[in-house]
Design a protein around this nucleic acid. Structure first.
Lengths: 307, 307
DNA sequence: CGCGGTAATACGACACCCGTATCGTGCGGA
DNA sequence: TCCGCACGATACGGGTGTCGTATTACCGCG
């Protein structure tokens, strides 16, 4: 029993006329008769009562008509669902993200994407930028939300492409007790002697390089006393008076009253970026996700410029 | 998209191994790979991620796995249902019956058959014996419950076969006012002069012949003053004093107090019979129906002999 | 670095399916 | 009553699909 035979049978059952059914199927009548006959031999009983003047369904034929219609409808539905996978309306997307994105675009991005592509299963994996480059390469994630540019070394080894999503100012988080805490703004020279809480370059290469770059600092010029991997941890050390830390401005939401958040003169920035494999940029699902990122960032940037 | 391809795909999806799947499908691996590839080209995207060491389902593949399993299960179910039609567990049966059967076997037969073959649609058509012979011939009914033997003329024109189902005594229904009403039993000679309500021979040939036969009457020897087609009508005329009528004993259930029901000496009988086309005797459904008839009659005969 | 295992490809044989031509049959009109 | 017509079934040839065997390509492992 093949679908073709069911389609043929159903056409005849609906038309109750082999000639017209054949016409509807864009074929000639003889092979249609043959296929229906073959189906009847397979199920072991006649599905039609035929005379040269009239074709009628047998009870078994009537039953099969209902079931065949149901099955063929289901097959059509599957075909449509498969087309949705082709068009990116359904599927799977695994996205990495730096935890700091939690405080800017991420919540709205997730909401936007879930509403626009409700049949895509979105899996979010919190990872550092460096880990995301690695997992983009081995295919464990499809898209990465990273902070700042990919270092040349990582970029050359695999063809990854990046887009700037959201730009925000860098700020210094300083214990209130420290003399610099009361300053309106800081210059890079102000912090060179200050004990610093920083990220390991191996895990956050883009961000670490960016900070040095925009502040005009040479490698090693900062007095790093502690290395951490999360903003929350960094803020904890700052609050404890261990040192200061250079973080994205959105960290204000997390900073307790015991910490002063001081901007830099010249408003140096850090950039949230989205990274994908080059051969993935025209994938419909990841493209939709990137679009959500930009849409969410657009709203955030507008609010940012108003304040 | 054909069922064969879905079957092949599903085997691979279950095994995650082309070789083992091919083995399970009793075929070799290369054509299996080809068919799966063909299916993938049709839906427009890969269903498996393959390396030489590992086969994995893509998201679309996982989805299709569920749907394909469902569809194939449904096809299997249809096959089983079709087999039920072959085996006579499902289908259609149109049975004719003489209205007098209503007062003996019919109610129990219907109940029995409906419980034994709940998936057979039983249609009951009240018809005289003569009409049933006609409609057995043209296929409008599949089985007939008739009274007494088919006359030779009807029998020869089409190959019908009959079985005795239930035998009961003939009785005379007489208005209470008539002198014969008080008799314990009657002989045929007693009624030759009495005005009679009878059936037309054209509609009930078997019964009319039977009555004449078992009572030893020659054609025309009865004084027929009225012809009717239903017991109920005959009883009405009897109650009105128009005349007497010779009916099956089960008519007692219907007879009002104004009518006397008197048996004949020698206990002549009428027989309820089941008739089928000869080429239908090994049809599973009608055979089951006949079996129900006999089973119902068996119980009835037992109760009859006890009284 | 070769070896085993696995999926993909190549190719020839066979079966299936389709279209054209034709037949058999039953109904309806002349 | 007979002929014509409509319709489904059958016959047959050509093309396509599907299968099995043989072979290739690739990957992981010892």
């Amino acid at each position: 029993m093949e679908l073709r035979q069911l389609r043929y049978f159903l056409a005849v059952a609906d038309e109750l006329h082999f000639g017209r059914a054949a016409q509807r199927l864009h074929m000639s009548q003889p092979p249609l008769s043959v296929q229906v006959g073959r189906l009847e031999r397979e199920v072991g009983l006649p599905l039609f009562e035929r005379s040269t003047r009239r074709v009628t369904l047998t009870p078994a034929g009537r039953h099969l008509q209902e079931r065949a219609r149901r099955i063929l409808d289901e097959v059509d539905a599957v075909r449509a669902e498969m087309r949705d996978y082709v068009d990116g309306l359904a599927g799977q997307l695994t996205a990495g993200f730096v935890s700091s994105a939690n405080y800017t675009v991420l919540p709205e991005v997730v909401q936007l994407f879930r509403s626009r592509r409700d049949r895509v299963n979105l899996t979010l994996v919190p990872l550092t930028s460096g880990e995301q480059f690695e997992r983009l390469r081995d295919g464990t994630i499809d898209v990465g939300i990273v902070r700042d540019e990919i270092p040349d070394a990582a970029r050359s080894s695999t063809p990854l492409v990046t887009d700037v999503v959201f730009e925000e100012r860098l700020v210094a988080c300083i214990p209130n007790a420290h003399p610099l805490a009361s300053r309106a703004d800081l210059s890079p020279a102000d912090i060179t002697g200050v004990p610093m809480i920083a990220y390991p370059r191996s895990l956050m290469p883009g961000y670490v390089d960016r900070v040095h770059d925009v502040l005009g600092l040479s490698v090693g010029s900062l007095n790093v006393v502690e290395e951490v991997v999360h903003q929350e941890t960094a803020l904890g050390f700052v609050a404890a008076g261990v040192g200061a830390s250079i973080l994205p401005e959105s960290v204000r939401q997390l900073a307790p009253a015991s910490i002063s958040v001081v901007p830099f003169s010249g408003s140096p920035t850090t950039r949230l970026m989205v990274a994908r494999r080059r051969d993935d940029v025209d994938d419909a699902i990841s493209a939709a996700f990137v679009e959500c990122l930009h849409d969410a960032a657009r709203g955030l940037t507008a609010r940012q410029s108003m304040s």
